[in-house]
Structure formats: C-alpha cells, structure tokens
Design a protein around this nucleic acid. Sequence first.
DNA 1: GGGACGTTACACTGGCTAGTGTAAGGACGC
DNA 2: GCGTCCTTACACTAGCCAGTGTAACGTCCC
Lengths: 264, 264
Amino acid sequence: MGEAVSALEKYDLTARLPSVLTHGVICREGRMASQDSVPQRVYRGQPDKRRAIARAARAVFGQQGYTGASVDMIAAEAGVSKRTIYNHYTDKEQLFLSVILEGSAEVAETHTQIADRHLRKILDLEEDLVAFALEWASSPAAFAGHFALVRIIQSEAARIPPAVLEAWQDTGPRAFQRELARYLSQMADRGLLVFEDADTAAMHFNLLTFVSVAQRSFYGAIMLHESDITELVIGGVKAFLCLYRPEPGARSASPSTSRGRASR
Amino acid sequence: MGEAVSALEKYDLTARLPSVLTHGVICREGRMASQDSVPQRVYRGQPDKRRAIARAARAVFGQQGYTGASVDMIAAEAGVSKRTIYNHYTDKEQLFLSVILEGSAEVAETHTQIADRHLRKILDLEEDLVAFALEWASSPAAFAGHFALVRIIQSEAARIPPAVLEAWQDTGPRAFQRELARYLSQMADRGLLVFEDADTAAMHFNLLTFVSVAQRSFYGAIMLHESDITELVIGGVKAFLCLYRPEPGARSASPSTSRGRASR
DNA sequence: GGGACGTTACACTGGCTAGTGTAAGGACGC
DNA sequence: GCGTCCTTACACTAGCCAGTGTAACGTCCC
C-alpha cells in the first residue's frame, strides 16, 4: 500500500473525482479528452460481475479488515472465481482502493438525502436540526459495512497513497460538509443563524453532533443505546445553536458580531 | 482477537485498572487478595527484557499495524529472541492488548502533565486555554508511535474484547477527560466559566479542539501545517468560550443559565 | 463454423507467519 | 559444585495467502 502512485487512472470512478487528479485524460462521458479518442473508460470483464465483486469486497473488507480479508473470501462472497477478480482488478490493493472511492461517494449521497429531507424546509430550527443530526449520527450504525471501511481507512491512512486519500475525502466527508455548509448558509440568509464562515459552522456542527457520537461508538463498531445518541445529539445541537443563533435583541442577519463569536 | 475473554488477569497493568475488572483477586501491592497469598503479580522472565519487548511491540505495531507486525519483527526490534517473547506473553494477541493498556495510561499521564503546566494557574483564560489546547492537539504528531496504536485500536474496536476496550478507554482517554473536567470545574469555581455539567463541557472542549485537529490529521497519520493546527485550535477555543464564558453583565458563578446554554 | 472474449475450476508456487521443540549456555543463589 | 530459571539459536510444523498458469466451457457476433 505504500508504493508511490502518481495517477488515479488505475482506480474506478475517476469521472467523479476532481479533474485535477484525473488530468482530464480519462473521462467517463467526455469527448474532450486531450488524448486521441478514448471516449469510454475501458474495463475488462462483464459489468455485472464487476459490480458483484465490488459489493462483496466492500462487505468482506468491512468485516475482516484489509489484511483479514482474503481474495478467496471475496470471490466466494461474490459468487465468482478468484481468477475473475484478477481479471477485473490488477491487485488486492487496487481492488480495495477502488472500493473505498466508490463507497465514499455513495454514502455522501445518502447523507445528502438525509439533509434534504430534514433541512430543505425549516419549520422549527432546533427540532429540525435535531432530527437531521439524529439520523445522520445514527448512520454509522445503519451502514455498518461502509463505516467499517471508514475505520480501516483511518487506521491505514498513513499507508494509503495520498492522492487516493485526498480523493476519498473530497468525494466523501468533505463533499458532504460542503453540502451542509450550503444548507447552513440558507438558514443564515433567512436570519435563522449568524456566522462569518459557513464552512467553520458546518465543521462545528459536524463535531458537536456526528463526531461526538462517532467518537463514542468508535464509528459504529460499538453499539450505543439510542438514548445515549439522542442525548449527545441534543446537547450538540443546543451548543451549536448557542454558538450561532442570532442574539435575541439583535437585528436579523446582523452583518457583524457583537460578542466574540466563533471565528476562523 | 474475537474470542471471549472473561477476565483481564491475562494482561498487564491490572493494578491500574478499575477494580471491578480485576475482581480484586490480583493486586500489585495488595495483601488483601481474596485468594491464598498471591501478593505480587508473577511474571516469568526478566523485567528488563519484558520492558524491551513491550517498547518494541509498541513501535512495530504502530508502524505496521496488528497484522502487519510479525513477532519476528518485534523480536528483532527488541533485540531478543522470538522464544523469549513467547516466554513472557502467551500470544501475539495478548502482547498487543497488554501493550495498548500500558500505552493509554502513559499518554493520559503525559496529557495530564500538559494540562498541569497550562491550566494550574490561569492568568489569561483564553490565552492559557489556547496554549494548552495547542500542545494537546499537537501530541498525536509528537507521539506518533502511540497514536498509530490508537488508530489501530479504533479500527479493530469491534474485534477487541469489550472488557479490554473498556479498560483502555478508562485508563486513557476517559481518565484524561475526567482530569480536564476537574480543571474546568476549578475555573468555574473562580467564576471564569459557567456550566451545569463539567463532563459535558470537557467533552465539548475535547471535540472543538483536540478532535477537530485529530479528525483532520487522521490522528496524526497525515502531517498538518502548524498554521492549520493553530487556526483550528484558536477557533475551537473561541467557540468553547462563547459557549461557557459567563455573560458580561451576569453575577459571577451564576447558579443557573438565563440563555439556553448547552446542557446535557 | 469459427474466432474473440470472459469465466471457471484447479493446481501450484513462493513466501510469509504463529507458534513449538530442543539443546546448549549463562546467571544466580546456596 | 549444583540446581533452577531465563535466554538464545535454530530448526521445524502447519497453515494461510497473493498471484499465476492452464485447459476447458460458454456466449456472442460475424
């Protein structure tokens, strides 16, 4: 896992990655590739097999860890011969990296849906934020398979090629944090919140709710009582609102801060 | 790592663990053991060898991960024959668990010293908190070896015997969080802070400073610019003070909260 | 029919690993 | 000097695993 990897082209999903990383050469849809005519990413093998392998790999890596998962296990889980796996992926490592990139995008999308459901229309700010944060913070328990992968990534971070790690963060956690910042900005526009920097506010919300639960549950590895989650989330939202709710007497959407608000 | 382990007696440092877990049977100093006369924990082998093994194990596990570290590597690093390791520890697993319990206690102690240095005498609240949090949040980079272990623990959490995991949390992170809560209480007594629950306040401080940095750096796996750390820490302390600093006009050490302060 | 391609079962290599067995030597106490 | 304990070097078992080679089979398209 430690070898230098200069490009991400080896891994799937390059189209979803920042174009800087893909060098604009390989593009899933694109005609504008700067090379000859390579309109479509070419994969060997049948797509359904590839999908089965990816799904199985995610599950087995999640349960067993990177080193604990053998390619034979993954093959069995996928209902596919081991040889076929090596027909689709060059390496166990490449399979792993490819899988984590897929997973992060997928989960970020799921989280975005959760945010959509709770934050698109704000009726009662605190209530809606709590409902959102509850579902969000419960997702590690719900998507146990994915977050087992997240834990592996965290522990292997030093051994994962930096470009891949960067791409993973950018399609996954950071993508969603941007989305969250967007929602918070909307609320600020309506005068429901006050802050200078939406990204900082989103980070604080993340820390005070999601991370506070994730921290305690080891990102879903340990089961928490629902009451504990609720307590943490409610406390976190209250703290967040204490930080960013407009002063009772202040004009709505005040341009600056009278008290020393959290700033970057 | 998944086998049921009913007692912690197999592992070192039982004397430092909560007595519930040691069943009061084995006690480093104790004469009051409920069994015959087992006044001293009996270790086979010479203590200096044991220490060399433990130190080497910590280093190698940290660099290579649990599965990546072979017992031969550890033996070589310790300057000891492999046979000697198996003379001191029954298992690779027992060696690992023993090592993480030692490490957590040691780091909690180091963190306590950092807190002592910065928080025993408060001159300027914000300044002192920032100085403390900076050093604290930088420790994952400083004690790379230990926090590599922490990352492994987090990723293996589901496979570590719950009793050991509990003991690890209790001698490590939680022990220090209690210490931090104690310091915050002192500040509250002096009217510098206002809160209902010191433990919640300590958790929020932890989240807003230490975790915020740890999150971004993958617990020390990724190097961060010092300016980034500083920025995160200062923002975190500002947010914390915004949450828990007494209202400008309020009487010092007010018993209750007028605004909706963060509560449990 | 025939070629190209993907898949499969299976055997196999080479390498690494946890853990053991053993005989020999060193240190220490008596 | 003698016994006990600890350590060491080394060989060894038994097993797992990544990755390859190969021959056979099916399918789809021409």
